[in-house]
């Protein structure tokens, strides 16, 4: 676990390659918790400025009415081997932040989408965007004490997922469980990458 000192904030000089995974989902779904549970450093926060897209045209008198919103991202790090460091970025899933993902997702291995079954409809928009943007993702369902228990199949059909999209149950507070969710995602991305470059699969 990271300490507050600055001496151990740095990566070993042997690290040549950074890889990243995005953790997305609605507010309160467990993004910060998951990033913190697996990170080897004290999770960090960064801020990104988003220009509010409400006005289509710049307003002449609008110096002051056009504003930027600050979006906080949590992130953590796992040095996977002497050569590779994995970064996990937790970002909010609300519609207005989608353009931010675009930049963040560039070069990402994939996306872990967190879902809370008590508010399953909150995740519809996020999942639809991931599919539209062609980002490889897996769904991790966080179970809360007052969640009803569902079968994976029920969740899968409630979320209307593609057959190939993996779904796992996860306790974001538990490092092992969070690591399993990440393994599920990377395994899926691996299988996609290993698949021979076939043309679009025929619609069923």
């Amino acid at each position: 676990m990271g300490s507050a000192g600055s001496a151990d904030r740095y990566l070993p000089d042997t690290v040549q390659q950074a890889v990243k995974i995005l953790v997305v989902g609605a507010f309160g779904v467990g993004k910060t918790t998951l990033v913190g549970s697996v990170s080897e450093i004290e999770p960090l926060r960064t801020e990104e400025h988003i220009t509010e897209a409400s006005a289509g045209v710049d307003d002449l008198a609008g110096v002051g009415t056009k504003h930027t919103t600050t979006v906080a991202m949590d992130f953590g790090r796992i040095t996977l081997n002497p050569r590779i460091a994995l970064y996990l970025f937790g970002t909010p899933g609300q519609r207005r932040f989608w353009d931010l993902w675009e930049g963040l997702a560039e070069g990402a291995l994939g996306v872990l989408a967190l879902v809370d079954t008590r508010r399953i409809e909150d995740s519809f928009d996020v999942l639809e965007q991931l599919e539209l943007r062609g980002l490889p993702f897996a769904v991790a369902v966080n179970e809360f004490p007052d969640s009803e228990t569902y079968e994976i199949g029920e969740i899968r059909s409630a979320l209307d997922l593609l057959d190939e999209t993996p779904v796992v149950l996860c306790d974001a507070r538990d490092p092992r469980s969070s690591v399993e969710a990440l393994i599920t995602l990377v395994q899926y991305v691996f299988e996609r990458a290993a698949r021979p470059a076939a043309p679009q699969e025929p619609a069923v």
Partner: peptide, 17 residues
């Protein structure tokens, strides 16, 4: 990402199990 890199990432994560 190429499959070799993904394999290394998988191996690294599995060591954390």
């Amino acid at each position: 990402p190429d499959t070799q890199l993904l394999q290394e990432v998988l191996d690294g994560l599995r060591r954390l199990r």
